[in-house]
Design a protein around this nucleic acid. Structure first.
Lengths: 212, 212
DNA sequence: GTCTATATCACGATAGAC
DNA sequence: GTCTATCGTGATATAGAC
């Protein structure tokens, strides 16, 4: 009923196949979500028989969760690096925004899977949300409050300010289709992301340079 | 093969059932997207036999398109009203932001269906995007440029500024699950939306009050 | 117009040969 | 470990009685 347990000494094919499957799964799930994706499509995308995928991961849902987990591990690294008290607020936020925008540009699939997941209720990431993410937000909040006490940041709600940064940057992954059509280009180019960064930084400037 | 054509003089049950079906469809599609939704669920939600739904709309996809179309008609009204040259930039944007946030609060389903649709490629709304939406953006852009020439608005890219307003406000519908968990509440309350508006308006203030 | 009962098919999962 | 062939489920869509 459940997936086979990973053996103690993983074989070579396993080590080759698993990342390949996860990459393919990320691509397919990001395009249609869990419900809209077919194991068959993932199989074709990684050029492996369908049965092999289920052999490694047991069920489609298990594979989905594995994909999500791998993705969420990378998720918070940038914030941990940039949104720290080591930087001045404006530098910190600019570094953060730029790295998130690069993420939206070069790995939009990851962002989209997460977006799908949230839209459909987030049951598969609830543990991550209440555990890791909440803790992460608490730490960022403390840094923002620290800056505010020092007069380096305007008195905005720190949590909602973080929400703003998330939504502004993720939109460049999740709404790419809409943006591309509006901008009249088949897909977003470097200059579009650059214009996005400039706009976001302009908005942020009222929070990070209160004394200006 | 195709749905029956609507008769010239619609019967009473039709007039009653169709909006009811569309309401139910909006709710169901918004929770799981097109692929994840079952016609059966929609049938249960509007307490009508499944066959009746397909009788009126032909196929699930046709019903989906009808749901989308009804929704998109309301989509741009707020922008047309608020983002006009009749208001000062700050008032215009605040009115717009508030009405979009109310939309995210009271009709998050609508926003989520659109988000699902964009994530899965937007094929069902492409005509809307290249037609109505592009035209809409062009008009807003002209107003922003007008304000900029008058020195009432900072020199940001008008299109990307509009993207920012969309993403900031839609996040309060599409990412509600995530926000609720982070804020430690089962669901977002009025005060949360109010805090969101204040944060967004603080961000916007650097664009709409350049001379401050 | 309405609804039941069913044809048809696609998909996830598995059995079992290699 | 790998892959083919297939089973069972559950979904869309329809036929046809009322």
């Amino acid at each position: 009923m459940k997936a086979l347990k990973v053996s103690a000494r993983p074989g070579l094919p396993r080590r080759n196949n698993i990342p390949q499957i996860l990459n393919a799964a990320e691509k397919v799930f990001s395009a249609r979500g869990l419900a809209g994706s077919r194991v068959d499509d993932i199989a074709r995308a990684c050029e492996l028989p369908k049965a092999n995928i289920l052999y490694y991961f047991g069920t489609k849902e298990d594979l989905y969760r594995a994909t999500l987990e791998r993705l969420l591990m990378h998720w918070l690294d940038d914030a941990d690096h940039w949104l720290s008290a080591d930087h001045a607020p404006m530098d910190a936020v600019e570094g953060y925004v730029r790295s998130k925008m690069e993420f939206s540009r070069y790995r939009p699939e990851a962002s989209r899977i997460f977006a799908y997941e949230l839209l459909s209720g987030g049951e598969h990431v609830k543990k991550f949300l209440v555990g890791t993410l909440r803790e992460h937000v608490t730490r960022r909040t403390e840094i923002f409050l620290h800056w505010q006490r020092q007069g380096l940041m305007a008195e905005v709600d720190p949590v909602h300010f973080l929400f703003s940064l998330w939504s502004l940057t993720q939109a460049y992954a999740d709404m790419q289709v809409q943006m591309a059509v509006v901008l009249g280009t088949p897909r977003l180019k470097e200059k579009d992301f650059e214009a996005g960064v400039r706009t976001i930084m302009k908005l942020v400037s009222s929070v990070c340079l209160p004394g200006k």
